[in-house]
Computed example of a mutant assay.
Amino acid sequence: MTVLPTAAPLGSATWRLIKAESTLSVRDKVGPLWGIGFPLLLLIILGSVPDLREQVENGGGLTYFDLYVPVLILFNLAVLATASLPVTLAGYRETGVLRRMRTTPVGPARVLAGQLVANFAIAVIAMVLFLAVAGAGFGVDLPRHPLGFVLAWLLAAAALLAIGLLIAAVAPGRGPATAIGTVLFFPMMFFAGLWVPISQMPPLLRDIAPYTPLGAGMGAFQDAYQGHFPSAGPLLTLAAYAVVSAFVAVRWFRWE
């Protein structure tokens, strides 16, 4: 009796592709180096500055350095969203990888899944490292409302990665993806409070910040650090960015 070969299970093919994309992501070094290494080094440098231990005005008892920990967690997500994810996918389109994979049983959709999982894993590692180093090395307390922090982080990750997919959808190649990501990165980080704490911004900018993805993320993080479940406004803003960006990205995404 002849036994016909069977195709590899769908799940195993997807898992192999996820592992391959994760390996390529580490080898590419953009996500690990700029998403983890650089902000972690910056965290250590800032933690060594005595002036940053002073309390922020209207900061709920938090010091400047306390505020920089969640800012750098958002920094990691912003790098992945504006550099690692879109540049990689736009590069796949530019070199014809997506076009070729579209004709195979694997399909290009699993490439997207692999990239999302790889970048999400880098973001999780970065978040855990930042909290651990800030706590063990500099005595920064963990968020007083852990569940609220986790929910806020998940929504922030979803919003930022969806924005990354949107950049990849409209960029024909690596160059345009890098340009779009750079243009978005600096304003987003400004409204996260990287250069000026949100509480010390002029009134107009302070009013705009909660409606930006990283401003909303920072607001939700601050609530969690102060022991409160994040208010509905920042969470709904992050969810809206995630849903709208993902929907537009899917509608506009081109495989070639």
Results as ranks from 00 to 15, higher is better:
residue 48 S to P: 07
residue 49 V to S: 03
residue 135 G to F: 02
residue 169 A to Q: 06
residue 142 L to P: 00
residue 232 A to H: 08
residue 235 L to H: 05
residue 69 V to I: 14
residue 5 P to Q: 04
residue 253 F to A: 01
residue 59 G to F: 13
residue 3 V to H: 06
residue 55 Q to Y: 10
residue 133 V to M: 02
residue 150 V to N: 00
residue 158 A to W: 00
residue 115 Q to C: 11
residue 170 V to I: 14
residue 134 A to M: 06
residue 249 A to P: 01
residue 138 F to G: 04
residue 1 M to N: 10
residue 106 V to H: 04
residue 216 A to Q: 08
residue 253 F to R: 02
residue 26 V to S: 00
residue 220 A to V: 14
residue 56 V to L: 14
residue 246 A to D: 03
residue 85 L to I: 07
residue 76 N to D: 09
residue 54 E to S: 11
residue 9 P to Q: 14
residue 220 A to D: 14
residue 210 P to I: 04
residue 141 D to K: 13
residue 158 A to S: 06
residue 78 A to N: 12
residue 133 V to F: 01
residue 216 A to Y: 06
residue 109 A to C: 03
residue 51 D to P: 00
residue 44 I to Y: 03
residue 206 R to P: 04
residue 42 L to A: 15
residue 108 P to K: 03
residue 218 M to E: 15
residue 30 V to G: 00
residue 31 G to C: 03
residue 73 I to W: 03
residue 48 S to G: 14
residue 255 W to H: 01
residue 147 L to D: 04
residue 24 L to N: 06
residue 209 A to I: 10
residue 64 Y to V: 10
residue 137 G to Q: 04
residue 31 G to K: 02
residue 234 P to K: 06
residue 195 W to E: 02
residue 21 E to M: 13
residue 188 M to W: 04
residue 166 L to G: 02
residue 238 L to D: 04
residue 113 A to V: 15
residue 77 L to E: 04
residue 192 A to I: 04
residue 68 Y to V: 02
residue 244 V to L: 12
residue 32 P to Y: 10
residue 89 L to F: 08
residue 123 A to G: 10
residue 140 V to Q: 01
residue 107 G to L: 12
residue 48 S to E: 11
residue 129 L to F: 09
residue 1 M to S: 11
residue 115 Q to M: 14
residue 10 L to H: 10
residue 112 L to D: 04
residue 248 V to P: 00
residue 47 G to Y: 07
residue 164 G to D: 07
residue 154 L to Y: 06
residue 147 L to E: 13
residue 224 A to V: 07
residue 180 I to N: 08
residue 227 G to E: 12
residue 96 G to N: 12
residue 208 I to L: 07
residue 135 G to Q: 09
residue 164 G to I: 01
residue 90 A to H: 04
residue 22 S to D: 00
residue 177 A to P: 00
residue 50 P to W: 09
residue 143 P to T: 10
residue 128 V to E: 02
residue 237 T to W: 00
residue 19 K to Q: 14
residue 106 V to W: 00
residue 11 G to C: 02
residue 114 G to L: 09
residue 14 T to M: 12
residue 155 L to H: 07
residue 108 P to M: 11
residue 105 P to N: 06
residue 40 L to A: 15
residue 213 P to S: 09
residue 112 L to M: 11
residue 185 F to R: 07
residue 80 L to S: 11
residue 227 G to Q: 12
residue 230 P to Q: 13
residue 107 G to E: 10
residue 209 A to Y: 11
residue 246 A to M: 05
residue 211 Y to F: 15
residue 125 I to D: 00
residue 238 L to N: 05
residue 198 I to R: 13
residue 203 P to G: 06
